[in-house]
Protein backbone atom coordinates (compact mmCIF):
# COMPACT_ATOMS: atom_id res chain seq x y z
CA UNK A 1 0.00 0.00 0.00
CA UNK A 2 1.03 3.50 -0.72
CA UNK A 3 1.82 5.10 2.62
CA UNK A 4 0.78 8.50 1.33
CA UNK A 5 -2.73 8.95 2.76
CA UNK A 6 -3.55 12.30 1.22
CA UNK A 7 -4.20 11.24 -2.34
CA UNK A 8 -5.99 8.18 -3.52
CA UNK A 9 -4.15 5.88 -5.86
CA UNK A 10 -4.51 6.91 -9.44
CA UNK A 11 -6.05 10.23 -8.56
CA UNK A 12 -4.46 13.13 -10.28
CA UNK A 13 -2.43 15.32 -8.00
CA UNK A 14 -3.45 18.86 -8.74
CA UNK A 15 -0.97 21.65 -8.57
CA UNK A 16 -1.88 24.86 -6.84
CA UNK A 17 -1.81 26.57 -10.23
CA UNK A 18 -4.33 24.13 -11.69
CA UNK A 19 -6.61 24.64 -8.72
CA UNK A 20 -6.54 28.38 -9.33
CA UNK A 21 -7.42 27.97 -13.01
CA UNK A 22 -10.55 26.09 -11.93
CA UNK A 23 -11.62 28.16 -8.97
CA UNK A 24 -10.96 31.74 -10.10
CA UNK A 25 -13.00 31.63 -13.35
CA UNK A 26 -15.78 29.84 -11.48
CA UNK A 27 -15.67 32.51 -8.77
CA UNK A 28 -15.92 35.29 -11.34
CA UNK A 29 -18.88 33.59 -12.99
CA UNK A 30 -20.94 33.11 -9.82
CA UNK A 31 -19.99 36.50 -8.40
CA UNK A 32 -21.18 38.64 -11.32
CA UNK A 33 -24.96 38.45 -10.63
CA UNK A 34 -24.28 39.04 -6.93
CA UNK A 35 -22.17 42.12 -7.69
CA UNK A 36 -24.89 43.72 -9.82
CA UNK A 37 -27.65 42.96 -7.33
CA UNK A 38 -25.76 43.98 -4.21
CA UNK A 39 -24.85 47.28 -5.90
CA UNK A 40 -28.55 47.76 -6.54
CA UNK A 41 -29.29 47.15 -2.88
CA UNK A 42 -26.54 49.63 -2.03
CA UNK A 43 -28.30 52.46 -3.91
CA UNK A 44 -31.62 51.73 -2.24
CA UNK A 45 -30.30 51.37 1.30
CA UNK A 46 -27.95 54.34 0.95
CA UNK A 47 -31.01 56.44 0.20
CA UNK A 48 -32.68 55.07 3.32
CA UNK A 49 -34.97 52.39 1.91
CA UNK A 50 -34.40 48.82 3.09
CA UNK A 51 -34.73 46.44 0.16
CA UNK A 52 -35.51 42.86 1.14
CA UNK A 53 -37.09 42.60 -2.31
CA UNK A 54 -33.79 42.03 -4.13
CA UNK A 55 -34.71 38.37 -4.48
CA UNK A 56 -37.92 39.28 -6.25
CA UNK A 57 -36.17 41.83 -8.46
CA UNK A 58 -33.68 39.17 -9.53
CA UNK A 59 -36.53 36.77 -10.27
CA UNK A 60 -38.23 39.36 -12.46
CA UNK A 61 -34.92 40.09 -14.19
CA UNK A 62 -34.21 36.42 -14.81
CA UNK A 63 -37.72 35.79 -16.10
CA UNK A 64 -37.57 38.82 -18.41
CA UNK A 65 -34.17 37.78 -19.70
CA UNK A 66 -35.39 34.26 -20.48
CA UNK A 67 -38.49 35.43 -22.32
CA UNK A 68 -36.81 38.26 -24.22
CA UNK A 69 -33.77 36.18 -25.20
CA UNK A 70 -36.13 33.54 -26.60
CA UNK A 71 -38.06 36.25 -28.45
CA UNK A 72 -34.96 37.94 -29.84
CA UNK A 73 -33.48 34.62 -30.90
CA UNK A 74 -36.69 33.93 -32.74
CA UNK A 75 -36.42 37.33 -34.41
CA UNK A 76 -32.98 36.28 -35.67
CA UNK A 77 -30.76 38.51 -33.57
CA UNK A 78 -28.47 35.62 -32.70
CA UNK A 79 -25.60 36.30 -30.35
CA UNK A 80 -26.76 39.82 -29.58
CA UNK A 81 -30.01 38.57 -28.03
CA UNK A 82 -28.81 37.82 -24.48
CA UNK A 83 -27.09 41.21 -24.29
CA UNK A 84 -30.21 43.08 -25.38
CA UNK A 85 -32.23 40.87 -23.01
CA UNK A 86 -30.06 42.00 -20.09
CA UNK A 87 -30.90 45.62 -20.88
CA UNK A 88 -34.62 44.85 -21.18
CA UNK A 89 -34.46 43.01 -17.85
CA UNK A 90 -32.88 46.09 -16.27
CA UNK A 91 -35.73 48.26 -17.52
CA UNK A 92 -38.43 45.84 -16.35
CA UNK A 93 -36.66 45.43 -12.99
CA UNK A 94 -36.72 49.21 -12.60
CA UNK A 95 -40.43 49.33 -13.38
CA UNK A 96 -41.15 46.50 -10.94
CA UNK A 97 -39.19 48.21 -8.16
CA UNK A 98 -41.48 51.23 -8.48
CA UNK A 99 -44.11 49.18 -6.61
CA UNK A 100 -41.73 48.99 -3.66
CA UNK A 101 -40.98 52.71 -4.02
CA UNK A 102 -44.61 53.80 -4.07
CA UNK A 103 -45.67 51.53 -1.21
CA UNK A 104 -42.71 52.17 1.08
CA UNK A 105 -41.90 55.81 0.28
CA UNK A 106 -45.22 57.41 -0.60
CA UNK A 107 -47.57 55.16 1.37
CA UNK A 108 -45.05 54.89 4.23
CA UNK A 109 -45.54 51.13 4.58
CA UNK A 110 -43.02 49.17 6.61
CA UNK A 111 -40.16 48.75 4.13
CA UNK A 112 -39.37 45.20 5.18
CA UNK A 113 -43.02 44.21 4.80
CA UNK A 114 -43.16 45.80 1.37
CA UNK A 115 -39.97 44.00 0.36
CA UNK A 116 -41.35 40.66 1.50
CA UNK A 117 -44.51 41.29 -0.49
CA UNK A 118 -42.40 42.20 -3.52
CA UNK A 119 -40.71 38.79 -3.32
CA UNK A 120 -44.07 37.05 -3.10
CA UNK A 121 -45.41 39.00 -6.03
CA UNK A 122 -42.36 38.29 -8.18
CA UNK A 123 -42.43 34.56 -7.43
CA UNK A 124 -46.15 34.29 -8.18
CA UNK A 125 -46.23 36.62 -11.17
CA UNK A 126 -43.25 35.19 -13.05
CA UNK A 127 -44.41 31.57 -12.84
CA UNK A 128 -47.98 32.66 -13.60
CA UNK A 129 -46.73 34.38 -16.76
CA UNK A 130 -44.50 31.45 -17.70
CA UNK A 131 -47.55 29.20 -17.58
CA UNK A 132 -49.55 31.65 -19.69
CA UNK A 133 -46.85 32.10 -22.32
CA UNK A 134 -45.68 28.50 -22.56
CA UNK A 135 -49.01 26.62 -22.52
CA UNK A 136 -49.18 25.71 -18.87
CA UNK A 137 -45.59 24.50 -18.56
CA UNK A 138 -43.88 25.47 -15.32
CA UNK A 139 -40.62 26.47 -16.97
CA UNK A 140 -39.34 28.30 -20.03
CA UNK A 141 -37.50 26.45 -22.82
CA UNK A 142 -33.70 26.70 -22.71
CA UNK A 143 -32.20 29.68 -24.50
CA UNK A 144 -29.74 28.70 -27.23
CA UNK A 145 -27.64 31.85 -27.25
CA UNK A 146 -26.34 32.23 -23.73
CA UNK A 147 -23.32 34.32 -22.81
CA UNK A 148 -20.51 31.82 -23.05
CA UNK A 149 -17.28 31.58 -21.19
CA UNK A 150 -14.58 32.74 -23.58
CA UNK A 151 -10.87 33.50 -23.66
CA UNK A 152 -10.47 37.24 -23.62
CA UNK A 153 -8.39 38.15 -26.70
CA UNK A 154 -4.87 39.30 -25.91
CA UNK A 155 -5.09 39.06 -22.13
CA UNK A 156 -5.70 35.30 -22.22
CA UNK A 157 -2.20 34.83 -23.67
CA UNK A 158 -0.50 36.39 -20.65
CA UNK A 159 1.80 33.99 -18.87
CA UNK A 160 0.49 32.74 -15.51
CA UNK A 161 -2.23 35.42 -15.13
CA UNK A 162 -3.89 34.57 -18.45
CA UNK A 163 -5.08 31.05 -17.61
CA UNK A 164 -6.23 32.13 -14.14
CA UNK A 165 -8.08 35.35 -14.87
CA UNK A 166 -8.74 35.61 -18.59
CA UNK A 167 -9.43 32.13 -19.95
CA UNK A 168 -12.91 30.64 -19.82
CA UNK A 169 -14.50 33.72 -18.26
CA UNK A 170 -17.66 35.60 -19.18
CA UNK A 171 -17.42 39.27 -20.16
CA UNK A 172 -20.24 40.00 -17.70
CA UNK A 173 -17.88 39.36 -14.77
CA UNK A 174 -15.55 42.14 -15.84
CA UNK A 175 -18.44 44.44 -16.69
CA UNK A 176 -19.75 43.85 -13.15
CA UNK A 177 -16.39 44.82 -11.63
CA UNK A 178 -16.24 47.92 -13.82
CA UNK A 179 -19.79 48.91 -12.77
CA UNK A 180 -18.81 48.49 -9.12
CA UNK A 181 -15.96 50.95 -9.56
CA UNK A 182 -18.28 53.29 -11.44
CA UNK A 183 -20.80 53.08 -8.56
CA UNK A 184 -18.08 53.92 -6.08
CA UNK A 185 -17.25 57.03 -8.13
CA UNK A 186 -20.93 58.02 -8.36
CA UNK A 187 -21.66 57.54 -4.68
CA UNK A 188 -18.49 59.06 -3.26
CA UNK A 189 -17.26 61.56 -5.85
CA UNK A 190 -20.33 63.24 -7.34
CA UNK A 191 -22.92 65.70 -5.94
CA UNK A 192 -25.61 63.13 -6.71
CA UNK A 193 -23.86 60.57 -4.51
CA UNK A 194 -23.51 63.03 -1.67
CA UNK A 195 -27.23 63.81 -1.85
CA UNK A 196 -28.11 60.14 -1.98
CA UNK A 197 -26.05 59.38 1.10
CA UNK A 198 -27.34 62.44 2.96
CA UNK A 199 -31.02 61.44 2.63
CA UNK A 200 -30.09 58.03 3.95
CA UNK A 201 -28.20 59.39 6.93
CA UNK A 202 -30.20 62.43 7.99
CA UNK A 203 -33.18 63.14 5.73
CA UNK A 204 -34.41 66.12 7.73
CA UNK A 205 -31.07 67.90 7.39
CA UNK A 206 -30.96 67.10 3.69
CA UNK A 207 -34.49 68.42 3.31
CA UNK A 208 -33.64 71.78 4.89
CA UNK A 209 -30.81 72.12 2.36
CA UNK A 210 -33.33 71.80 -0.46
CA UNK A 211 -32.69 68.20 -1.41
CA UNK A 212 -35.90 66.36 -2.24
CA UNK A 213 -35.82 63.32 0.05
CA UNK A 214 -38.71 61.66 -1.76
CA UNK A 215 -37.10 62.12 -5.18
CA UNK A 216 -33.70 60.82 -4.08
CA UNK A 217 -35.29 57.78 -2.47
CA UNK A 218 -37.31 57.02 -5.58
CA UNK A 219 -34.09 57.18 -7.61
CA UNK A 220 -32.36 54.91 -5.09
CA UNK A 221 -35.07 52.27 -5.27
CA UNK A 222 -35.31 52.59 -9.06
CA UNK A 223 -31.57 51.97 -9.43
CA UNK A 224 -31.86 48.93 -7.16
CA UNK A 225 -34.56 47.64 -9.49
CA UNK A 226 -32.47 48.20 -12.62
CA UNK A 227 -29.34 46.60 -11.15
CA UNK A 228 -31.32 43.79 -9.47
CA UNK A 229 -33.01 43.04 -12.78
CA UNK A 230 -29.65 43.01 -14.55
CA UNK A 231 -28.26 40.75 -11.82
CA UNK A 232 -31.06 38.25 -12.32
CA UNK A 233 -30.66 38.44 -16.09
CA UNK A 234 -26.92 37.83 -15.91
CA UNK A 235 -27.55 34.84 -13.67
CA UNK A 236 -29.92 33.45 -16.27
CA UNK A 237 -27.91 34.04 -19.43
CA UNK A 238 -24.58 32.91 -17.96
CA UNK A 239 -25.56 30.13 -15.56
CA UNK A 240 -29.04 28.58 -15.72
CA UNK A 241 -30.28 29.27 -19.31
CA UNK A 242 -33.95 28.72 -18.43
CA UNK A 243 -36.40 30.12 -15.92
CA UNK A 244 -38.39 28.03 -13.47
CA UNK A 245 -39.49 28.27 -9.86
CA UNK A 246 -36.05 27.26 -8.52
CA UNK A 247 -33.94 29.52 -10.74
CA UNK A 248 -33.64 32.33 -8.24
CA UNK A 249 -33.56 30.51 -4.92
CA UNK A 250 -31.70 32.67 -2.47
CA UNK A 251 -29.42 34.57 -4.85
CA UNK A 252 -31.12 37.84 -3.90
CA UNK A 253 -30.73 37.23 -0.20
CA UNK A 254 -27.12 36.28 -0.81
CA UNK A 255 -26.66 39.65 -2.55
CA UNK A 256 -28.23 41.32 0.47
CA UNK A 257 -25.76 39.47 2.68
CA UNK A 258 -22.94 40.67 0.42
CA UNK A 259 -24.16 44.25 0.81
CA UNK A 260 -24.09 43.98 4.59
CA UNK A 261 -20.79 42.06 4.58
CA UNK A 262 -19.38 44.82 2.36
CA UNK A 263 -20.59 47.39 4.89
CA UNK A 264 -22.90 49.20 2.45
CA UNK A 265 -19.89 50.28 0.37
CA UNK A 266 -19.79 49.65 -3.43
CA UNK A 267 -16.28 48.21 -3.45
CA UNK A 268 -17.02 46.34 -0.24
CA UNK A 269 -20.15 44.84 -1.77
CA UNK A 270 -18.12 43.81 -4.82
CA UNK A 271 -15.43 42.24 -2.66
CA UNK A 272 -18.03 40.39 -0.58
CA UNK A 273 -19.77 39.16 -3.74
CA UNK A 274 -16.46 37.87 -5.07
CA UNK A 275 -15.82 36.18 -1.75
CA UNK A 276 -19.26 34.54 -1.75
CA UNK A 277 -18.68 33.48 -5.34
CA UNK A 278 -15.38 31.99 -4.20
CA UNK A 279 -17.12 30.06 -1.41
CA UNK A 280 -19.67 28.71 -3.89
CA UNK A 281 -16.95 27.79 -6.38
CA UNK A 282 -15.01 26.08 -3.63
CA UNK A 283 -18.05 24.08 -2.50
CA UNK A 284 -18.48 22.80 -6.05
CA UNK A 285 -14.82 22.04 -6.75
CA UNK A 286 -13.66 21.10 -3.24
CA UNK A 287 -14.02 17.39 -3.98
CA UNK A 288 -11.14 17.71 -6.45
CA UNK A 289 -8.84 19.52 -4.07
CA UNK A 290 -6.64 17.70 -1.56
CA UNK A 291 -7.40 18.39 2.13
CA UNK A 292 -10.63 20.19 1.25
CA UNK A 293 -12.20 17.00 -0.06
CA UNK A 294 -12.41 15.73 3.49
CA UNK A 295 -14.33 18.76 4.71
CA UNK A 296 -18.09 18.33 4.32
CA UNK A 297 -19.26 20.64 1.51
CA UNK A 298 -21.95 21.97 3.82
CA UNK A 299 -19.31 24.14 5.51
CA UNK A 300 -18.62 25.91 2.24
CA UNK A 301 -22.33 26.33 1.59
CA UNK A 302 -23.09 27.97 4.92
CA UNK A 303 -19.83 29.95 5.07
CA UNK A 304 -21.21 33.15 3.45
CA UNK A 305 -24.09 33.34 5.89
CA UNK A 306 -22.12 32.49 9.00
CA UNK A 307 -19.40 34.97 8.05
CA UNK A 308 -22.01 37.68 7.54
CA UNK A 309 -23.32 37.02 11.06
CA UNK A 310 -19.79 37.24 12.44
CA UNK A 311 -19.14 40.49 10.60
CA UNK A 312 -22.34 41.94 12.01
CA UNK A 313 -21.31 41.16 15.56
CA UNK A 314 -18.46 43.59 15.01
CA UNK A 315 -15.51 41.26 15.43
CA UNK A 316 -14.19 42.35 12.04
CA UNK A 317 -14.92 46.04 12.42
CA UNK A 318 -18.33 47.48 12.95
CA UNK A 319 -20.79 47.36 10.03
CA UNK A 320 -23.11 50.34 10.37
CA UNK A 321 -26.20 50.66 8.22
CA UNK A 322 -27.09 54.13 6.95
CA UNK A 323 -28.65 55.95 9.92
CA UNK A 324 -32.10 56.51 8.44
CA UNK A 325 -32.24 53.12 6.71
CA UNK A 326 -35.74 51.72 7.07
CA UNK A 327 -37.34 54.89 8.43
CA UNK A 328 -40.05 56.50 6.28
CA UNK A 329 -39.51 60.25 5.95
CA UNK A 330 -42.42 62.39 7.07
CA UNK A 331 -41.91 66.09 6.55
CA UNK A 332 -41.96 68.14 9.72
CA UNK A 333 -41.66 65.16 12.02
CA UNK A 334 -38.68 65.13 14.35
Amino acid sequence: MDPEPLFEKGAEIMSFFEILTIIIPSTLLTAAPLIFTSLGGMFSERSGVVNIGLEGLMAVGAFTAAVSTLGLEHAGLGNASPWIAILIAGAIGGLFSLIHAVVSISFRADQTVSGVALNFLAAGLTIFLVKLIFDGKGQTPYITHNIDKVDIPGLAKLPFLGPIFFQQVAYTSYIAIFIAILCWFIVYKTPFGLRLRSVGEHPAAADTLGISVIKMRYIGVLLSGVLGGIGGAVYLVTITSNYNVTTIAGQGFLALAALVFGKWHPIGAMGASLFFGFAQALSITSQQIPYLDRLPSVFMLIAPYVLTLIVLTGFVGRAEAPKADGVPYIKGQR
Binding site: V113, A117, L121, A123, G124, F128
Partner: peptide, 9 residues
Protein backbone atom coordinates in the same frame (compact mmCIF):
# COMPACT_ATOMS: atom_id res chain seq x y z
CA UNK B 1 -49.64 33.88 -4.59
CA UNK B 2 -50.16 37.09 -6.54
CA UNK B 3 -53.36 37.78 -4.59
CA UNK B 4 -51.62 37.08 -1.28
CA UNK B 5 -48.76 39.44 -2.23
CA UNK B 6 -51.26 42.16 -3.14
CA UNK B 7 -53.08 41.69 0.16
CA UNK B 8 -49.80 42.22 2.03
CA UNK B 9 -49.12 45.36 0.00
Amino acid sequence: NIIIALIIF
